[in-house]
Amino acid sequence: MLLARQALAPAEAIRRLTPLQGQDSPAPYLALAARLDRLARDDLQAAIESRSVVKTTIMRLTLHLVAAAEYPAYAQLTRQARMRAWRKTYAHLDEAGVAAELGAWLEEPRTNDEIRERVGGYEGVADDPSTPVVFARTLLPLVQLPPAGFWRDRRRPSFIVDSRPLPEPVAAATLVLSRYLAAFGPASRRDVAAWAGVAQRDFAEAWARLSTVSYRDDHGTELFDLPDQPLPPASTPLPVRLLARWDQPLLAYADRERIIPLEVQPLKLTLSGDATVTVDGRVAASWRLQREGDAVKLTITPHVEIRRSAGGEIRAEAERTARFCEPDARTFGVAGV
Results as ranks from 00 to 15, higher is better:
Tyr90Val: 11
Ala126His: 04
Thr78Arg: 06
Glu101Arg: 14
Ala67Gln: 10
Pro141Arg: 08
Ala99Asp: 07
Val125Asn: 02
Ala104Val: 06
Arg87Gly: 08
Ser130Pro: 00
Tyr90Asn: 07
Glu114Phe: 05
Asp128Lys: 12
Ala99Arg: 15
Glu114Ala: 15
Asn112Leu: 14
Pro72Val: 06
Trp86Tyr: 13
Pro141Tyr: 09
Pro72Gly: 10
Ala75Glu: 03
Val119Trp: 07
Leu106Arg: 05
Arg60Ile: 11
Thr131Gly: 00
Thr111Val: 08
Ala126Leu: 11
Tyr122Val: 00
Tyr71Pro: 01
Ala68Arg: 10
Ala75Arg: 10
Asp113Glu: 15
Leu102Ser: 09
Leu93Gln: 12
Glu108Tyr: 00
Val133Cys: 00
Thr62Phe: 07
Pro109His: 11
Leu61Phe: 15
Arg60Thr: 10
Arg60Trp: 09
Arg79Gly: 06
Asp127Arg: 14
Glu123Asp: 13
Thr111Gln: 02
Leu63Met: 12
Asp113Ser: 15
Arg79Leu: 01
Met83Thr: 09
Glu95Met: 09
Val133Pro: 00
His64Trp: 06
Thr89Ile: 10
Gly97Val: 13
Ala91Met: 06
Val133Lys: 01
Arg118Met: 05
Arg60Asn: 12
Trp86Pro: 04
Arg118Ala: 08
Val134Gln: 10
Ala85Lys: 13
Val133Gln: 04
Thr62Gly: 03
Asp127Glu: 12
Ala69Cys: 03
Thr62Pro: 07
Pro141Cys: 06
Tyr122Lys: 00
Thr62Asp: 02
Phe135Lys: 01
Gln80Cys: 04
Val119Gln: 03
Ala68His: 10
Gly120Asn: 06
Pro141Ala: 07
Thr78Leu: 04
Val66Asp: 09
Pro132Asp: 07
Ala75Ser: 15
Pro72Cys: 06
Glu123Ile: 00
Gly103Ser: 13
Ala136Asn: 08
Leu140Asn: 04
Ala67Pro: 02
Asp113Ala: 15
Leu65Ala: 14
Leu77Gly: 03
Pro72Trp: 07
Glu95Trp: 08
Tyr90Leu: 11
Ala104Leu: 13
Gln80Leu: 15
Tyr74Thr: 03
Trp105Gly: 01
Gly121Asn: 00
Glu95Val: 15
Val134Asn: 13
Pro141His: 07
Gly120Lys: 02
Arg116Ala: 07
Leu139Asn: 01
Asp128Thr: 09
Gly103Val: 05
Glu107Ser: 11
Glu108Thr: 14
His92Phe: 06
Ala100Trp: 04
Ala126Ser: 08
Leu140Phe: 09
Gly121Met: 04
Leu65Arg: 01
Gly97Glu: 12
Arg110Cys: 08
Leu106Ile: 08
Leu63Tyr: 08
Glu117His: 12
Arg87Cys: 14
Ala85Gln: 15
Val66Trp: 03
Arg116Thr: 02
Ala136Val: 05
Leu140Met: 12
Ala136His: 04
Thr78His: 07
Glu70Cys: 03
Asp94Val: 10
Arg79His: 12
Gln76His: 03
Leu106Asn: 06
Ala96Trp: 06
Arg137Asp: 02
Pro129Met: 04
Asn112Gly: 12
His92Glu: 05
Val98Ser: 13
Arg82Ile: 00
Thr138Arg: 08
Arg84Gln: 12
Phe135Arg: 01
Arg79Asp: 09
Glu114His: 06
Val66Asn: 11
Glu95His: 11
Ala75Met: 03
Ala136Pro: 02
